[in-house]
């Protein structure tokens, strides 16, 4: 079964969100990177860009596929992972750690509660597999 940390929240598009004080860090899940295969390029928006929950904020490309990145929550981007420019493989190697993508200051606190818990995400993956 996929690696799904219990302390994170998830989207149905396979992003994870981690609360860090007032901010939320975002990346893609172990399952997502495994499906994509070797990640070779990650396109992220500029700092200060406003993102909207359920809307795309960037693109991740593997050798074989292009996939949109969906914002788990609405807010403003205050950090993005510049390390991915030269080392996109970090998304595969460490999806919940050094492969993170953006940090968002949430604008709509209610968004968090609509995200899937680890248990719900695991169930979602299990259902999708059938």
């Amino acid at each position: 079964m996929s690696n799904i940390p219990a302390d994170l929240r998830y989207t149905r598009e396979h992003e994870w969100a981690r609360r860090e004080g007032d901010q939320v860090r975002v990346g893609i899940t172990h399952f997502a990177q495994e499906q994509l295969g070797d990640v070779v390029f990650v396109e992220l928006p500029k700092l200060g860009t406003r993102v909207t929950a359920h809307r795309t904020f960037g693109v991740v490309e593997s050798v074989k596929a292009v996939s949109d990145l969906f914002a788990p929550i609405s807010g403003e981007i205050v950090e993005h992972n510049t390390e991915l420019g030269d080392a996109p493989q970090l998304v595969n190697q460490d999806p919940y750690g050094r492969g993170w993508m953006i940090v968002v200051t949430p604008s709509s606190p209610g968004d968090w509660d609509e995200l899937l818990t680890a248990q719900q995400y695991e169930q979602f993956l299990a259902e999708a597999a059938h």
Partner: peptide, 19 residues
């Protein structure tokens, strides 16, 4: 991981394309 290629069910990768 198997994929369709030209009407065939073929392996696209085993451990990863780059490796």
């Amino acid at each position: 991981r198997m994929v369709e290629f030209g009407g065939w069910d073929m392996p696209v990768q085993y451990r990863g394309i780059i490796e």
